[in-house]
Amino acid sequence: MTASTAKPAILVIDDEAQIRRLLRVTLEAAGYAVRDTETGALGLNDAAVNRPDAVILDLSLPDQSGLDVLRRLREWTHLPVLVLSVRGEETVKIAALDAGADDYLTKPFGGGELLARLRVLLRRTQPTDAPSVHRFGDVEVDLTQRTVTKSGAPVHLTVKEYALLRLLLQHRGKVVTHRQLLREIWGPGHEEDTHYLRVHMANLRKKVEDAADQPAFLRTESGIGYRFTV
């Protein structure tokens, strides 16, 4: 199934009618096909029947928690899910990300931000192979050669720094939680050792960013994790 001919279909699960209307207007204007439901149960049903290309899920729903809806979805599909949450609910956001959500947005959010996130999620699901060479700024990372150059000069990264960079590049544009990074790089026993991450991230930034204290690419997501942005 190739999605290039048909419009990508987005399923919105949100109980607020006004948000649904606004999302529909924004998404349709951007060339998506939109379906919306107001409860988790209807949303799950719709996702199973109509097989959308991505889901936008509000974490606070009237009938069941958005987190439960997410888990039910993840029982049978890997389709990209963007969760909507409010400020001050970092714990819920992290739980959603760890439960398999692909990204999150904090309300209130701008339409541009939403579309950018959605693009990233949909791109990831394209059946094309992930690129092996990433370029950002004057940095070039070749994942097959395992080399990093900045302004043409080779950059020496430690094994952990390289692993960190590679992981974030593989999830380019998408948030990766502290826990995910720690488990991938240091192993399941180190999920709480966030200072490892901070120290290595600081070193990595010094090596690849132009201004390490104002990183342009390796961005911090407050209290949640990191995101590689371009």
Partner: peptide, 28 residues
């Protein structure tokens, strides 16, 4: 946001999640 924060503070539901922080990150 301010009203919500104040409410969180007063209701005693505020539970800080202490974690290692980098001052540069924080300021940014």
């Amino acid at each position: 946001n301010n009203l919500l924060d104040q409410t969180r503070l007063e209701s005693g539901t505020l539970q800080p999640r202490l974690d290692w922080c980098d001052a540069h990150d924080l300021v940014n």
